[in-house]
Design a protein around this nucleic acid. Sequence first.
DNA 1: CAGATTCATCGTCTATTTGCGATGAACAAT
DNA 2: ATTGTTCATCGCAAATAGACGATGAATCTG
Lengths: 102, 102
Amino acid sequence: MQRTSIEISYSPEEELIARYAKALSHPVRVRILHFLESQACCFTGELTEEIPMAQSTISQHLKELKEAGLIQGDVMPPRVKYCINQKAWAEAKKVFAVFFDK
Amino acid sequence: MQRTSIEISYSPEEELIARYAKALSHPVRVRILHFLESQACCFTGELTEEIPMAQSTISQHLKELKEAGLIQGDVMPPRVKYCINQKAWAEAKKVFAVFFDK
DNA sequence: CAGATTCATCGTCTATTTGCGATGAACAAT
DNA sequence: ATTGTTCATCGCAAATAGACGATGAATCTG
């Protein structure tokens, strides 16, 4: 989308906040994370029961959360168990807190 | 984008977090807010000098931040002074803190 | 081996986001 | 009145996001 010759570059902090914020920028992902917090872990199937959306859509949101680093998935055939990535979670908590505290 | 008959509805908290997160989901908006924090307030012109992007693009990002409620603009002809909306800022800080603390 | 189950991925469609230049509105200064 | 300054908005193009159904991969169960 950048079409000029000057490529704007961002600091790691700016990128990190934007990345975590993007993961939280859709209400259904907020809900998924909230559910995951309350359960510690859960299977995809529990989410598809809980949330009235197509299974493929939920799977895609899980993928985005995984790519943002906020969750991780353990394959337990034939299911997949998703959990909060505690390290990333703590980091996200921190960067937001720092950002808002200035 | 919703094409099925069942319309999923979200809680006010889910919507609020998603709204603030969306505002922070682009690194240039993070930078703008950061700059605004450090200056208390600033004019659009300062941002266009600081950030190598077209004036129209910056203006649009400011609009998004304003629509999210995080900033406000005071018209001081011929310029516009932008400031953090302290109330919304505090609210955003709180909802993120609460969200990550569970 | 033949189903059944669970989930990811693909392809498609539509909507939204992001970027830019050009233009316009509002006002100040000459 | 004309000009200049500052900023928002419009219109366009390209990229990304979001939703779905269909299909596929992997693994159990009978």
